[in-house]
Amino acid sequence: MSETFTPILLCLLSAVTVATANFVVKRGGDVLSARMVLALTSALGMLPFAFFVPLPEPGLWPPILMAIGAHLIYQFCMIRALHRGDLSLVFPVMRGLGPMMTAIFAVIVLSEYPGALGWLGLSLAAAALIVFALPERATAKARKLNQTALVWALLTSAGIGLYSVTDAYGVRVAENKFTFIVWLFLLDWIGTTAVTVWTRRGQLVARLRPQLIGGLIGGVASIVSYGSALLAFSMTSAATVTAIRETSVVFGAILGAVFLKEGFGKRRIAAATVLAAGLLLLETDI
């Protein structure tokens, strides 16, 4: 029982903290600069652990580099989505479709095949999460902007599926799974930082200063979130981890309701109920 319950707790912890990280990044305004601070904070926070884990064995470097590439694709698409749409619009779409994308990639790469109930649960969960993104009302200009944001959110969901599978593969083939986790964090900041320094040149300090507090909070939350998810990847299927982790949209909606005064509404309560049912079906099928 505890072997099943532990990865579920890790996934729920990951869900709460990933929602927190995305909330503080979006609230900061300049998403790219905030992501740079977040990535650097995560790397610095993980640095002490590098002295307590073995160095990556030669065969682990290709999975680490593949994972870093997948994370860079995901972060690029996510930054574009958050710049072009409200958190309450793009976050549910990109996280809601993530489990479906992960399941598809897991079939191809990891040979993980959910059964009929698993696919039904994934479909229900994805549909419920997308309901969070349906706008109440919008002008023609807002709808045009939303369409662009949704395209990037869809691409972000593909990035989630890609990095979930590469990370699951890496943590499973590593002789010491903590080596993979630590070194992924230690190197993951390079791409985002390089892009930020290049695009914000001449105004980098001014852009970074307002993002420091949010980025620091997000960095700590990111360590907890993805560290928990990577541990869960080593205990259960990638699709299960991603599906439970994407309950983060519920926590994101709660953060929006409390701090941004966004209404939760009957529609989102109903969607959360369907989401729970979908995840229950998935867990029953695994």
Rank of each mutant, 00 (worst) to 15 (best):
M1H: 14
P7S: 02
L12N: 06
T17R: 00
A21N: 10
V24A: 02
R27F: 10
G29V: 08
S33Q: 05
S33L: 05
R35T: 15
V37Y: 06
A39P: 04
T41F: 06
S42F: 06
V53M: 02
P56R: 08
E57F: 11
P58Q: 12
L60N: 04
L65G: 07
M66N: 11
A70G: 09
Y74T: 05
I79P: 01
D86M: 07
D86E: 14
L87Y: 15
L89Y: 10
V93Q: 01
M94T: 05
M94I: 03
G96T: 01
P99Y: 03
I104P: 04
I104M: 13
F105Y: 11
F105C: 03
F105R: 00
V107L: 13
V109Y: 10
L110H: 09
G118M: 05
L122A: 00
A125N: 03
L129C: 11
F132W: 13
A133S: 15
A133Y: 09
L134F: 15
L134K: 14
A142G: 06
R143N: 13
Q147E: 14
V151K: 11
S157V: 02
V165A: 03
A174I: 06
E175C: 08
N176Q: 10
F180I: 01
F185H: 07
L186R: 08
A194V: 15
W198H: 14
R201N: 11
R207T: 12
P210C: 09
I217S: 05
A221N: 01
S222P: 01
Y226Q: 04
G227M: 00
F233S: 00
S234W: 06
A239W: 01
V241T: 00
E246F: 04
G256K: 05
K261Y: 13
F264D: 07
R268I: 12
I269V: 15
A276P: 08
L279T: 01
E283W: 08
T284E: 12
D285K: 07
I286C: 07
